[in-house]
């Protein structure tokens, strides 16, 4: 094809019987959305390449034995996609139930609770959550006898290792977003990776070192992508633990970071006139939601003149 006739190719497919037309390179998820079907997504973040890991977005594809992850499957001409079949709904519900049975999800992105209700997911059907002893070092291929009366969870005590940032992995759903954000997708620091195998896999630094002893540069870009509140700023964590976190009373003020010339947009989240968190908009074309340690955490000087 020469450059002159390189017009965008349109792919046509059907979603629940409705014909949709999208540009080449679109995903099945894009097609479902364009047909007005909302699907849950967890491991697929808006600024990231899909990991295809959580399976909460699966749909049925005519001719395919297994369900397909809509987030990562490229749309092909003539695909017949069905989102509302018993099979697809069953799998999406079970995935949500399983996640809720293993991880604490009460501080997750707002939509999750809605998806759970919509799907009729009841995580408690797998038994009361087991609260286990502190985690053992990874031992792939081996695990202790199951407790049976209670459902095994990913519980471990929250890692509070510094004044900036808490890792509360009892809430982790292993969506790989933080690993990708710290690694190839955004930060290129590679401070954290998945360690261990199977249900015992955890996000970890080398030898589970504390974050200050790892390669972490405290950019907080992993916090920005974590969908469950497993990674969270220390101030937010403390306020939540005290029951003082109140998102509905918070205000967001958009400004530009003053530390350097890149010009990252900052959203200052304030509660009772105090900054409680700083983020950057995911749709900002400079940051894609990312910041560095100065923008994300270097604001304690703000207001210091006021409170003394």
């Amino acid at each position: 094809m020469t450059t002159t006739d390189r017009q965008r190719v349109t792919i046509s497919a059907s979603v629940d019987g409705k014909t949709v037309e999208l540009p080449e390179g679109s995903s099945v998820l894009d097609a479902c959305r364009s047909a007005g079907v909302g699907l849950p997504t967890l491991c697929y973040g808006p600024t990231m390449t899909p990991a295809s890991a959580c399976r909460v977005c699966v749909v049925e594809l005519e001719g395919s034995r297994a369900l397909i992850p809509s987030c990562s499957r490229e749309l092909e001409e003539g695909m017949e996609i069905r989102t509302g079949t018993d099979r697809a709904e069953h799998s999406r519900r079970l995935v949500l139930e399983l996640l809720g049975s293993a991880s604490e999800l009460d501080r997750s992105e707002e939509q999750l609770a809605g998806w759970m209700t919509m799907a009729g997911a009841r995580s408690e059907r797998f038994g009361p959550p087991a609260v286990e002893a502190p985690r053992q070092p990874p031992s792939p291929g081996h695990h202790g006898s199951p407790e049976l009366a209670a459902a095994a969870t990913v519980y471990e005590p929250a890692k509070v290792e510094d004044e900036l940032y808490v890792r509360d992995y009892s809430r982790c759903i292993l969506c790989y977003r933080c690993v990708d954000a710290c690694g190839v997708e955004h930060q290129n620091t590679f401070a954290i990776a998945v360690a261990g195998r199977g249900f015992d896999s955890r996000i970890s630094t080398e030898f589970d070192f504390a974050l200050p002893d790892s390669a972490c540069v405290y950019c907080g870009n992993c916090i920005a992508v974590c969908p469950t509140g497993a990674l969270v700023g220390k101030i937010e964590y403390d306020m939540r633990e005290q029951g003082a976190w109140d998102e509905s009373s918070q205000e967001i003020t958009r400004t530009v970071c003053s530390y350097c010339g890149v010009g990252c947009n900052l959203d200052l989240h304030t509660q009772d006139n105090r900054i409680v968190k700083v983020t950057s908009p995911h749709d900002h074309d400079v940051t894609l939601g990312n910041l560095c340690i100065k923008g994300r955490f270097g604001w304690s000087y703000v207001g210091s003149g006021v409170d003394g």
């Binding site: 399976r55 799998s91 249900f199």
Partner: peptide, 14 residues
């Protein structure tokens, strides 16, 4: 349970 790679939810938790 021991041999699941742990990547996807149906198998890791299932």
């Amino acid at each position: 349970r021991d041999e699941s790679c742990g990547q996807c939810v149906p198998c890791r938790i299932g």
